[in-house]
Design a protein around this nucleic acid. Structure first.
Lengths: 228, 228, 228, 228
DNA sequence: TATGAATGAGAGTTCATTCAT
DNA sequence: AATGAATGAACTCTCATTCAT
């Protein structure tokens, strides 16, 4: 149950982070300390799962006492919820913007494909599914919904742009978006838990294949995009 | 749907127990007792989630003492893992067989579509994701993998048959199977947690749409396949 | 906060109780263990006050683990509430009966006077006030009310008998009962906390004085009781 | 009733603070700050009970930080003890003086009767019992004793005056005072916690009845004392 | 085979107190 | 004089597991 002392020992061999988080046991303004605690919580949650991370684990990882953690947060749920938000929003909002800033929609799609499956995103997926599923029988958690919708909207925007520019053929953007998102989720799940697990490149390839057949002869990747 | 007695014994030594299952508080052969306990555990897990079901809940539902439960099982994880197996295998093995017994592969696919998304399967999906995620950082749980592979093999078999019979066009059966499974998982996830959640019919429609575009002009279901 | 290790050490020099409570860490039927725990809790509560007694204190005093305590009780409130009940009811119900079994009502009153103020009852009073006041802003606690009313009824019964037999003069039994109870409570309070505290004999004397003036010339104590 | 600012500052740096009490978040002489904190604590204690009021509650109500509170007081006990003093002394000292300033002792008694049981005093009683009981096993708290004695002396003085003036018949003033105080305490207790609780008027009536029978035919209240 | 009393680690949370600023 | 971040012990309650019966 107790998470491994993940680089918690003060003065331990922390390779990164050292610069940003002065792990001396000094005073910090509330916002700074909150941030430090959340940053310490993220890897714990993504490694062990939201349900397996306790207050004491977080405190140890952040290099503070349990009292300090509860001083700054209303409860362990709040911490985990915010940790997920930071990690996920911090990645997918910028990704969404990059995606839409691409010169062509096809290139935007490729940014998407490479953005959702890369070395860094396994951690996100773990967090994402964990928070998605752990709130299973519980509250619907509007944060997650908002995140989901925000991402969905970006994707739909991208597809719409491609259709309007003639890059894609797409009779129903919403439908395609739903299908795309579902496939991405499913591939990620398979990558995390599958037997055998999908490689990054496999996951991307599947996604590209799906997009190709879904968005018509105007291909996403192979060959030069032609408007028909 | 398993043959589980469904009604968890409400606390005390209830007088109305089935005649066929001799679950009086008497001795039972190990295998019988194990089975009774597992069958009592299934509805608990599918209702509350694997992480929220305790030994005591199971014991109470099975109408035995906690000692009896731990006598027959190595731990609570084993119980839950096996309970999931019973529930899932009890449904998807027969489904796989029905699928392959259909006159045509296209009809087999339709059995699949209706088999994975119906009023009964929400519970399975919950169980499935639950056990998938909960074993996240823990043991790889070969049971799940075997289940997954068994199901995958059946699907691949079906697609192969359709391709061989000329019903489908499919350059790579494994690829398509993977993509299909991923989409099914993703749609189920979206159905369980989405905002807004997908309706059963929407989920099926997406699936049929995917199959149509993936398996070529030879249509899955409605009407005579037409090339456009 | 932590109560002194009140004869908790297993094998410690427990002078009494040893015969009734076999403080070996052996198994006990639930009812026995409950009783043992409650009996261990009573002196703790009466010495330190209900609000200052914790689960650990009780466990230590009972010579069991905290887990054992929570196994047998729903919570610390239940323990304290039942401990108070045992102590108070165990004393005042018999006292009420003895009071009413006396040959004359006057003698019954004397039993009351000596019954409520003696070496043993200081502990009861502490318990009583503690539970009375600690539930201050909380639930009304029907147990206490029932106890109070039961005792009140006995007292009223006694006075009625004395009035009917001509021993007492009493225009309104209920009023007198209320006044009597209030005075008893007040004297007990003064005895527990007063500066200087009332001696037992003083408390009794005040009570007798009050009864004499309240119940008329037919005196309670001094001189032979005469019906006029 | 003290001159407490009554309205506890709701969290943030409220803009609407009284002009008369310069409780801006500026420096205050120690005595002023102590006073402000105590006055903020009084309503908290009387409403929630001494045991349920925390340092943070007091700090928030006083509009200062927790550090400021502990800077000015040795501990939370000291604050509560002094808050009780303020509340109680602020009421009963003036009451004692008014009582003794009455033209006749009988009128003084009536002031007492109405002074101890009125709409305002329930709060005092709660405080009083609370502090009485909470100091149960702790320090004897000389403050309380001094308060008690001061009040007792006033009552005794009043009775003495009535006896000397021939208004009352009272063989032993100390005894009567003790009995009176005890009855008042007991009635208050019954009023606060009783089932059913005593009404104000009932409590007063009981008290008057007691005084009448205790202080002889020279009546407490109505009209000029007449021998019957 | 079955029981259920007993255990103790660990969960989240509260809170008076400390102390660097 | 005033602050509020930091602390750590103590709280109640949960629960899988152990084991004498």
């Amino acid at each position: 149950m107790t998470a491994a002392p993940e680089g918690a020992a003060p003065g331990g061999p922390g390779p990164k982070r050292r610069a940003v988080a002065p792990d001396k046991r000094t005073r910090q303004p509330t916002e700074v300390r909150r941030r430090l605690i959340l940053e310490a919580a993220v890897p714990l949650v993504s490694e062990h799962g939201a349900g397996r991370v306790g207050l004491r684990d977080i405190a140890r990882a952040a290099g503070v006492s349990v009292g300090t953690v509860t001083y700054h947060f209303a409860g362990v749920k709040e911490i985990i919820s915010e940790a997920v938000s930071i990690e996920i929003d911090g990645y997918y909002r910028p990704l969404g913007e990059r995606m839409l800033s691409a010169p062509t929609a096809a290139e935007g799609l490729e940014i998407l494909v490479e953005g959702v499956f890369n070395a860094e995103t396994d951690r996100h997926w773990r967090l994402w599914f964990d928070s998605w599923l752990s709130s299973a029988t519980l509250a619907p958690d509007s944060h997650q919904h908002r995140r989901y919708e925000h991402w969905s909207d970006r994707v739909a925007e991208l597809i719409t742009r491609g259709r309007d520019s003639g890059e894609f053929r797409c009779p129903d953007v919403q439908e395609t978006t739903t299908r795309l998102n579902a496939l991405v989720d499913g591939l990620a799940l398979r990558r995390l838990r599958g037997a055998p697990p999908l490689s990054l490149e496999q996951a991307r390839t599947h996604l590209r294949g799906f997009l190709a057949s879904e968005l018509g002869p105007a291909q996403v990747r192979s060959g030069p995009p032609r408007a028909d």
